[in-house]
Amino acid sequence: MANEARTISKRDVAGWLAALMRRAEVIAPVAAHGGDVAFAAISSPEQVVFDFQNSLHPPKQFVLPQTDPLVVIRRNGNGIELEPVRDAHPRVIFNLRSCDARSLAFLYRMHASDLPDGAYLARAENVTLVSLACTVPCELGFCTCCDAGPFLKEGTDVQLTDLGEHLLAEPGTDKGLAMLSEAGDLFRPARPDEERRRLELEEAAKRAFGAETCHFASAMRRVSTGRVPEELWGTMSDWCLECGGCNFVCPTCYCFSVKDMKQDGSWVRCRTWDSCQYQAFTLEASGHNPRERRADRIKRRFFHKVSAQYYLRDGTVGCVGCGRCVRVCLGTTDMPAVVEAIRKGAWNG
């Protein structure tokens, strides 16, 4: 659909956003307290920021919230009544970065396969993604190692590229194409020089990467063939403070716990974010815990993220290279650091 590329003048973006807001909740990066950037539902187009380092808290929360009501449970005479909670509200996630668009495709595949997850799919299927390609790599990102950026070939409904005065918009799906068509004459077909400029920007962005790299292939070989010394996990585990932050900000992590919340005489069964790094995550009702040692939990996390077994199932490593785990880690056991330790067989803090 690349030849369907269009452009919109930056002056007209507010009008486009206003039109989108009339038929959907528009979620976009906005300025929060003291320089923080956060994804939030906007109340006016002027709130949207275009020049930003990706938010620390990923937009996955809008398809997979930290507290996610699934079923309302009510007493009905002697029985109980179950009412599924489905949130099919139309949403547009605007200006999300390539890695995040890629991660939502990953999460969709995961929730749609085997036993389809109705609550997740209801939300995800009503979300339209308008991603903003990264012309300048972020400080700690390594998306080039995960095929998740800085520009995308697939996995987003519309990809925007900042050309200065204009935004280039490339539809990636029929939904995206329809969205651009509905915007009418706010968009015009892209000129060849604009499409050329976009390609130049992509090449320049790729070249600008380098500081942060993550050698997944060699780590995968070692993890998948049992060539990581046991002691290494133990050593690394002293550098983890078990905060769970890596899981919570990871755009591809989806593990959860299930709890019932009392509400106005009924109960709401909720899915809540959980962390495989918490000791109680695998705690069994008997009191037995198969992964009582933190070392075993770290090992488990990285096995899930980079082993061949999961690569074959998911078609990718469980990482989009956003670098958020580097920013959030209360210890020093982020993805690039651990992958390096696995690859070298040694940990240097």
Binding site: G35, D36, L56, Q61, C243, G245
Partner: peptide, 15 residues
């Protein structure tokens, strides 16, 4: 959600 610019937590929280 964490606050990345806060001078103490700098985006980092405990469990």
């Amino acid at each position: 959600a964490p606050s990345e610019n806060h001078p103490v937590s700098r985006g980092r929280l405990c469990a």
